[in-house]
Design a protein around this nucleic acid. Structure first.
Length: 284
DNA sequence: CATTGTCCCTGGAAGC
DNA sequence: TGCTTCCAGGGACAAT
């Protein structure tokens, strides 16, 4: 539905959100599941939350029972409920072979079957965290938007009483996990909701539309293996194509695919928000 | 509790 | 042409 089908006018920066992390998870899982870590080479200590030696001591040799994901966190699930959380923030990538810009590799995870995962991150904002209790670690996050737990009613409950703009609310990981700037804009467009609409003032109908739009946008982006607007790539180095379907994100000035009006960009709480002023009117 | 502000980080783009 | 400044934005944290 809609979509330009052409590459975007490349505004820089777009981060791995839920669909990108899920795509990475699906690629890594068959490579890593059932193996164990034999080494973590930390090339930039800033990437590790806490002490790198402590991390190594806790995880080396411990079987990796699964590769999971919660919101934008990739989880290497170990025994006894422990795990390693990898967060890619803005420019992080996990690659199965050494990337061309090897100076941007911040850590290398080596596994018992010889597999190596290179944590590449130009801007060093990504993190590796040893997690003592994965369940507790994930509890602070809002529901997974593609799970049965996330219903239109639960979304309505969480929006109630919040006066912040709906766009800002969608970026709050306590409200719903995994939605970032790109997919928040896309969902608001599909639902026909202005990004500055106060979260608590959505009608029931709008809330249902938004709930549906979020799931649709995220599902479709997973099918397209994520959006490679900036540095995101699959572990094999391939690019995703989800951005080719974007209706508004990173398309300021281009015609709205629904009505043809020029798309606009405004700032909502220091974040760029792309939208169609005609299709997403602000009620007064 | 809800909300806002600050910081981190690098490189592309804009401005002089 | 070459320098400086701004900006992108997720999330931890502090402040209000």
């Amino acid at each position: 539905m809609f979509g330009h089908g052409t590459p975007p006018a490349l505004h820089l920066s777009a981060m791995p959100e839920l669909p990108e992390v899920e795509t990475i998870r699906r690629a890594l899982e068959p490579q890593l599941r059932g193996e164990h870590l034999v080494d973590i080479e930390v090339l930039d200590a800033r990437i590790v939350q806490g002490d790198a030696d402590l991390l190594r001591g806790e995880v080396l040799g411990r079987p990796l029972v699964d590769v999971g994901r919660r919101g934008k966190h990739l989880l290497l699930l170990l025994t006894e409920g422990k795990g390693i959380a990898l967060h890619l923030r803005m420019t992080g990538a996990l690659l199965l072979s050494e990337p061309a810009h090897s100076s941007r590799v911040r850590a290398i995870l080596r596994f018992s079957n010889g597999a190596q995962v290179f944590f590449n991150d130009m801007r060093r904002l990504g993190t590796i965290t040893f997690v003592e209790d994965v369940e507790a670690y994930c509890r602070r996050l809002g529901p997974e938007p593609l799970s049965d737990e996330f219903t239109a009613e639960s979304l309505a409950r969480r929006l109630a009483g919040r006066r912040i703009p709906i766009k800002a609310a969608l970026l709050d990981q306590h409200l719903v996990a995994g939605v970032g700037n790109m997919y928040a804009d896309e969902a608001l467009f599909l639902a026909g909701i202005h990004p500055l609409t106060p979260a608590s003032s959505l009608s029931h109908c709008q809330t249902v539309s938004l709930w549906q739009a979020l799931r649709e946008v995220l599902c479709r982006a997973i099918a397209d293996q994520g959006a490679s607007i900036s540095t995101y790539a699959l572990p094999g180095g391939e690019k995703g194509t989800a951005h080719e379907r974007f209706n508004v994100a990173h398309r300021k000035g281009q015609p709205c695919p629904k009505c043809g009006a020029p798309l606009q960009r405004l700032m909502v709480r220091k974040r760029g928000a792309y939208f169609c002023p005609a299709c997403q009117p602000l009620a007064d």
